[in-house]
Amino acid sequence: MINIQSGIPGFDQLTVSELTEGGIPEKSTTLIYGPPKTGKSIFCNQFTYNGLSNQEPCLYVSTDQGYKQVQRDMTDFQWLIQNYIQNQTIYFIDGISHLSGGKFENKNNIVSSSVSNPADLMVKVGIGTRNVYKTSNHFRSILDSLNTLFAFNPDQMVIKILKAYLRRITEAGGTGLIAYTEGITDPKTENELKSLFNNTIRLDGQHIHIKSDHPDFDEVQYFESTYTITDNGIVVNENNFKNIN
């Protein structure tokens, strides 16, 4: 199994074990979840930027923020993505900007869709995966986040969209990272959701809990530590590492 860099200082060191070298397992799917405002989007963006700066393309589906806002949020951390937008290393599906009224002009690699139109969203994901796959058969795929999808669709529909999305990116060899705010669906849906992923990362504002259930291994691996959100993004604190296996 190959792991890719997370881009989060301390994370790759934390996830080293007898079985793996640390980082995020390539071509796996990860759910990052936790209470509101605990750094999930920052984590996603940091992961995205690390990939881009390593020439790994990224398919970014944004349903919470429009693409301008995402770009601005990344700029706050000095993660400048303008060049990657221009040279089309990133393929951006903006599922929310249409809500703010203005007309959205599609570009080659920035396309609009709608959180309330899952069929269209999947068409764009289909085009997007092909687009990034053509550049590189390993790429990163972000979905930030499921929250707005849950606000605009019945719970079971979101699960179906998610399944279709995960199948699509996994097939193409993408490494998926999907954000979700804990507590915005009932516990049953939440459990079903978690069961769809190889790995889960939980952020609660102080602690980071990682659970990795890779099909290549017999046992589930757990890691935990504390983390801080700094001006340079999330940092996992190295003196609190715990490998609970």
């Binding site: 899952p118 069929a119 269209d120 999947m122 068409v123 994901v125 289909g126 969209i161 279709a164 699509r168």
Partner: peptide, 9 residues
């Protein structure tokens, strides 16, 4: 009747 991801509208 479209597979998700295929243009149908």
């Amino acid at each position: 009747c479209a597979v998700p991801g295929v243009e149908c509208e």
